[in-house]
Design a protein around this nucleic acid. Structure first.
Lengths: 210, 210
DNA sequence: TAGATTGTTAATCGATTAACAATC
DNA sequence: TAGATTGTTAATCGATTAACAATC
């Protein structure tokens, strides 16, 4: 039975399901039971069946799940086939690391352009993506609408640029700055990648060890 | 009353508490009630008091919490004052972005050295940190023990290097590779920063919007 | 068919919220 | 002092696990 509102705990597990199913698929595995998948992921079979039941019925009694099929269903659920487009703001070290090393297309996202203010960067190209001046942002987005804005700018510029992205119709902000954006627009979501928070959580965990 | 085992939901909120309290401190705020802090963080006052009660009694009836003091307590809880040291493996784009732009010391962590296999990188220095050859890892760590290993290597090398770090006594691995490490050693924790999972969660959320 | 395994309902467990006596 | 606000206990809510009829 499909649920109206899927809990964030379930949403956070979906990419992991996708990753594991993709590994299984690449390893040539054809079918898998909730039990076996649970064992390999460290989850209960019950939880997997419960999670999947939020979105539909993908299995078959007595058989389990077809790996390729379930991978496809989850990639659908995650929106990987929607052709989402993205722009990146801030072509500093981290921005360029994403441009050159992160495979946006493996998540079904097409990065169409990047922006910065530094004269030596503007006009350059990284992994086939051109760097424009931030002044061109509105003009560019009016011609190439994007669903996602990737924020890899200094924190002092973050909120202002986030506002401009939202004004241009961006629906999701992938925020790498270590501040909390205040986005008031309805229907716009922020996904934070807070390095410092992550490192501090690790610091806590190793400090607790006996 | 101090809890034996603090739930991971609480642990994940601690760095956010620290960040907000630090902002308040820098803004010159002297005291704050659980109610006011909750309003600014989007949490209930109850939850904040409940969370803090896992670690001790830091407030005062009728007054609230002293910002500087509470910030200090949380920084203690997070292990920020323990002088944790770290090494970084993989000085590619992402590794160098961390070396040059991420302030480890703001989380109380000292990054002492970095490692790579690429000849042109070995011997160079970024933000005061020297790049050694990975062959020197064991030798280096025997002379400069580290609590944390930062993994910014290609995924094919991740598990092998994680094993070597653990063998050298590293207690926590900050994993930026998009695979799940299989660490068997007891008392070693892995903190994952899975970019792809994060982007897919964002993709899901914007795909759901009405 | 018989064994396996699903989707779903019920039971349990844990986390969040509410309430309130204690007290600064 | 009186008002404010804590720490904690109790109540509620939500998420995970267990159980099982349905069925491939």
């Amino acid at each position: 039975m499909r649920k109206d509102k899927v809990s964030s705990a379930v949403i956070r597990r979906l990419p992991r399901y996708y990753r594991h199913l993709n590994d299984l698929y690449l390893a040539g595995v054809e079918r898998i039971s909730s039990n076996a998948l649970g064992r390999s992921m460290g989850l209960t079979a019950s939880q997997i069946r419960q999670d999947l039941s939020c979105f539909g019925e993908f299995g078959q009694q007595g058989y389990g799940y077809n790996v390729e099929n379930l991978r496809g269903e989850i990639s659908d659920i995650l929106g990987m086939k929607r052709g989402h487009t993205a722009v990146l703001l801030g072509a500093g070290n981290l921005g360029r690391a994403l441009l050159e090393n992160f495979h946006f297309e493996r998540s079904g996202v097409t990065l169409t352009g990047a922006f910065d203010v530094a004269p030596p960067l503007v006009g350059q190209e990284f992994a086939g993506v051109s760097i424009h001046h931030v002044d061109q942002l509105e003009d560019y987005l009016s011609r190439h609408p994007a669903m996602i804005g990737v924020l890899t700018v200094p924190h002092s510029a973050a909120n202002r640029l986030a506002g401009r992205l939202v004004a241009c119709g961006v629906k999701g902000i992938w925020n790498f700055t270590n501040i909390e954006l205040d986005i008031s627009a309805p229907g716009v979501v922020v996904e934070n990648v807070h390095f410092a928070d992550s490192l501090l959580a690790l610091s806590y965990m190793i400090s607790e060890a006996p």
